[in-house]
Simulated scan of single mutants.
Amino acid sequence: MVRFLTIAALSLALTAAVQAADSKLDYDHQEQWKAARDTAQSPIDIVTADALPAGKDEPAALQFDHLRAPAEVVDNGHAVEVETNTTQATIRGRHFTLAQFHFHARSEHTLDGRHFPLEGHFVFKAQDGRLAVVAVMYDSGAANAQVQALLDDLSHKTGHPGSDEIDINGLLPAKRGYYHYLGSLTTPPLTENVEWYVLPAPVTMSQRQIDGFVAHYRHNNRNLQPRNGRPLIHYEG
């Protein structure tokens, strides 16, 4: 049975996560990160052959609304982050609001051992404080207009937070199948009981755009963590 954290505990975890975001993280010495660690950490290698199919009676779809939203692009000290709170999601039948999304180079999760150049984490929060992260893989290919808008905003700050709009749909794959497991935040305090939805269908951006992110953070991915027998569910979409 899934264990739920109290609202107070999650609030403390979020506060600590924000404090951690204010300082650079040493990704070359991750063993020195100060955090409470247990046996359900993220990221993991998604071994597709180990995944169990989602039940047919399970409300498994990821549905997104209000995808065109005001956003502010910031450098939070360890990642390029986009702050926005307009986009809504229905995840397995429950309502969530997008708090922010950010990027890791290279990907934190792997698919059958394969890394992607970038991974985006779309962090959703429910009214009771529960966290769900939708992970999107990015690969080299056709240029992406929405990615370019983010990079342009990061390079030329207007000084008016929230004045720019982004079409988040352009940052998500058309195929919304996913691999689901329970894990943790991937930065201190590494709080567990976070729902993960890893979308295997990649979104493309040009190599120049990838280089634009890498120019800010070349190595800000946490090391892979053991799965420790946690269930891995696959929803085809």
Rank of each mutant, 00 (worst) to 15 (best):
V74N: 11
L14A: 13
E165Q: 12
F124K: 06
R94Y: 00
V147C: 15
N223T: 15
F122V: 02
H115M: 07
G93Y: 06
N85R: 09
V74Y: 10
A149C: 09
A16G: 05
H104F: 08
Q207K: 14
I233K: 05
A40F: 00
V133Y: 02
F116Q: 11
V147T: 15
A143M: 04
L12V: 01
P231R: 09
L14I: 13
Q30H: 03
T204D: 05
G237I: 12
H180A: 13
A145I: 06
E108H: 08
K34F: 05
A174R: 14
F213D: 07
A54P: 08
Y217A: 14
G177W: 04
E108S: 15
A105Y: 02
T15Q: 14
R94C: 03
R3N: 12
K34C: 09
V136P: 00
I168Q: 15
D57R: 09
D65G: 13
L25S: 11
A16P: 00
D128L: 06
A105K: 04
E195S: 14
P70L: 08
S107E: 02
Q41T: 11
T97C: 04
Q19D: 13
D38W: 10
D38H: 15
S107Y: 05
L151E: 06
N223G: 14
L14E: 14
G93E: 04
N220P: 00
R208Q: 13
A149E: 10
I166T: 09
E72R: 13
V198D: 06
D112T: 07
L62K: 00
Q209W: 05
E236Q: 14
G212S: 04
V214E: 12
E31Y: 08
V136W: 03
S23F: 14
S163N: 11
A89S: 15
L172H: 08
N220D: 01
A35W: 04
D57K: 12
Y178R: 01
G129W: 08
D128C: 09
Q32C: 03
F101Y: 12
T187L: 02
L25N: 11
F64D: 08
T186H: 12
A61P: 00
V136F: 04
D112Q: 08
P43S: 01
L131F: 13
S155W: 00
N144C: 04
A51R: 01
D112W: 11
T15P: 00
T15H: 13
D38R: 15
V74A: 12
A142C: 04
L98H: 07
Q225R: 15
A71M: 14
P189F: 02
G177P: 03
A215H: 14
G141I: 03
L12D: 12
